[in-house]
C-alpha cells in the first residue's frame, strides 16, 4: 500500500531531513508554496488510517501566524492602513504569509515523518551510530505500555482496599501521586531483574552488533542518490543567490529567473518523490499481479 515506506529507513530519514530542512531555511515564497503543496500530498498519501488532517486547526494557525508579523513589524514601504498610529504594511504581511506557509508545511512534513518513521525504523537509523542509546530507547518503548497497564492495576488495587479516594480534586491529585510513587517503586525494583537478564545474555561482554531486518537494496541506493542530487541542486541555487528574496523595505528579488525556476523544479520533484514512487510501485504491482 504505502510503498514508499518500504524503502530502507535511512532513505526515508534522509528524505524528510532534506525536504523539511530546505523548507525551513530557504525563505522563498515560491519554493515554500511548492513545499506546502508537496507536504499536503505526502501527508494525504502516508497518514495513518483514522488520522484526520485537522484542516481547521491548520487554517486557523495559518491565519494567526500570517497576521502576527504585520502587527509587530512596521517596516516596509507600502502602508495598507494604520492601527494605533502603527502602519500595517504589505511587505510585513507578505513576510508573515510566507513564514506561516513555511511553518505549516514543516508541520505537515513532520506529521508524515511520524507516520512513516515508526520507533523500529528510527532505532534502525540511530542504532548504527549509537547502539547503547537506541537500546535504551527500545527498552523505554517497551516499558511505556507496560507502565500504563501497571498503573491501572495499582489504581484498581488501591481503590479496592479503600485507599484511593476521588471525592474532590485534591483527593484525586493525592491518589494519582500515590499511584505514581507505587508504580515507580515497583518498576525500579523490577528494572534490576531486566539488568540481570541482560547481563545473563552477555550484555557488556564485548563489542555489540546491531541486528536489523532492513536491507539496503539497489532501489534504496538509487533513491538516496536522487534525493541527495536534488538537494544539492537546490542548495547550490541557494548559495548562488538565485533564490534570494528580501521583503524589506520593499519586495526585492527576481522570483522567476531561469535558474530559480530550475531550482523550484528540482525541489518540486523532491517533494513529489513519494507520490511518484507510489504510482510506479502500484503499476508494477498491478503488472505482477496480472501474471499470478
Amino acid at each position: 500500500m504505502t510503498e514508499y515506506s518500504e524503502y530502507n529507513p535511512i532513505v526515508t530519514f534522509v528524505y524528510f531531513l532534506a525536504v523539511a530542512g530546505l523548507a525551513m531555511f530557504i525563505m522563498n515564497p515560491v519554493l515554500l508554496t511548492v513545499s506546502l503543496l508537496g507536504s499536503v500530498v505526502c501527508f494525504c498519501l502516508k497518514r495513518n488510517k483514522g488520522e484526520k488532517a485537522n484542516v481547521l486547526i491548520f487554517v486557523g494557525l495559518f491565519v494567526v501566524l500570517a497576521l502576527i508579523n504585520p502587527l509587530f513589524h512596521h517596516n516596509g514601504v507600502t502602508v495598507l492602513f494604520l492601527i494605533n498610529d502603527n502602519p500595517i504594511t504589505l511587505e510585513a504581511l507578505a513576510y508573515g504569509v510566507t513564514a506561516s506557509v513555511m511553518v505549516i508545511s514543516v508541520l505537515f512534513w513532520f506529521r508524515s515523518f511520524s507516520a512513516l518513521m515508526t520507533g523500529d525504523k528510527l532505532l534502525y537509523v540511530f542504532g548504527r551510530f549509537s547502539p547503547k542509546f537506541s537500546l535504551m530507547i527500545s527498552m523505554a518503548l517497551r516499558y511505556i505500555p507496560l507502565f500504563a497497564e501497571r498503573s491501572k492495576k495499582i489504581k484498581d488495587a488501591r481503590r479496592a482496599m479503600g485507599a484511593y479516594e476521588e471525592e474532590n480534586l485534591w483527593d484525586s491529585v493525592k491518589g494519582g501521586v500515590k499511584v505514581f510513587i507505587s508504580l515507580t517503586g515497583q518498576s525500579l525494583e523490577k528494572g534490576i531483574i531486566t539488568a540481570d537478564s541482560m547481563e545473563a545474555r552477555g550484555y557488556g561482554s564485548g563489542k555489540r552488533t546491531f541486528f536489523s531486518r532492513y536491507v539496503f537494496k539497489k532501489k534504496d541506493g538509487i533513491a538516496l542518490v536522487l534525493i541527495l542530487l536534488l538537494t544539492a541542486a537546490v542548495m547550490a541555487a541557494k548559495m548562488a543567490g538565485v533564490l534570494d528574496f528580501s521583503f524589506y523595505p520593499a519586495a526585492e528579488g527576481e522570483l522567476f529567473s531561469v535558474w530559480a525556476v530550475g531550482a523550484y523544479a528540482c525541489y518540486g520533484v523532491l517533494t513529489l518523490l513519494p507520490l511518484m514512487s507510489e504510482i510506479t510501485e502500484r503499476e508494477k504491482w498491478r503488472y505482477l499481479r496480472s501474471k499470478i
Partner: peptide, 24 residues
C-alpha cells in the same frame, strides 16, 4: 555516553525513569 562504560543496572534504571517520565 556511548563511549563510556555504563553499568547495566544503571542503564535499566534510566530506561525505567525515561518511561515513567514519558508516562508523566
Amino acid at each position: 555516553f556511548e563511549k563510556k562504560r555504563t553499568g547495566t543496572g544503571r542503564m535499566a534504571l534510566v530506561a525505567v525513569l525515561v518511561a515513567l517520565t514519558v508516562t508523566g
